[in-house]
């Protein structure tokens, strides 16, 4: 799992700003969404690794609920063509 080649993104530490170029709308990923994005950018290749990394980045406990939320969010990123 990795960020799609046609995605441009900027991380200013407050948020990650993400867009499929040249035609996509910019999206703002904040908080846990930004943590998931950073985990993928760091090279985490599967959902379990992404969840663990995102939990570590945000200081959250890696509960089943957190893992489930991460799985759902990653599925949305894939559906949007932002992650492949």
């Amino acid at each position: 799992m990795r960020i799609a080649a046609d995605v441009a993104w900027v991380d200013d530490e407050r948020a990650a700003y993400v867009a499929k170029v040249p035609y996509g709308d910019p999206l703002v990923l904040e908080g846990s969404a930004a943590a998931v994005w950073r985990a993928i950018a760091d090279g985490c290749a599967d959902v379990d690794a992404i969840a663990a990394r995102a939990a570590a980045l945000t200081g959250a406990d890696l509960t089943e609920t957190v893992a489930s939320d991460v799985r759902t969010f990653v599925q949305r990123l894939v559906a949007g063509g932002l992650v492949v």
Binding site: D6, A8, W9, V10, D12, Y17, A19, V21, P22, D25, P26, L27, V28, L29, E30, A33, R76, L77, G80
Partner: peptide, 26 residues
């Protein structure tokens, strides 16, 4: 995921990428 205001510095960087992608297509 939300569509919201993108700060100018980030928007300029994304816009560079947008224009570059259009140039590549053409």
């Amino acid at each position: 995921m939300i569509e919201a205001e993108v700060p100018l510095a980030a928007r300029i960087r994304l816009a560079h990428a947008v224009v570059d992608a259009l140039a590549t297509e053409a």
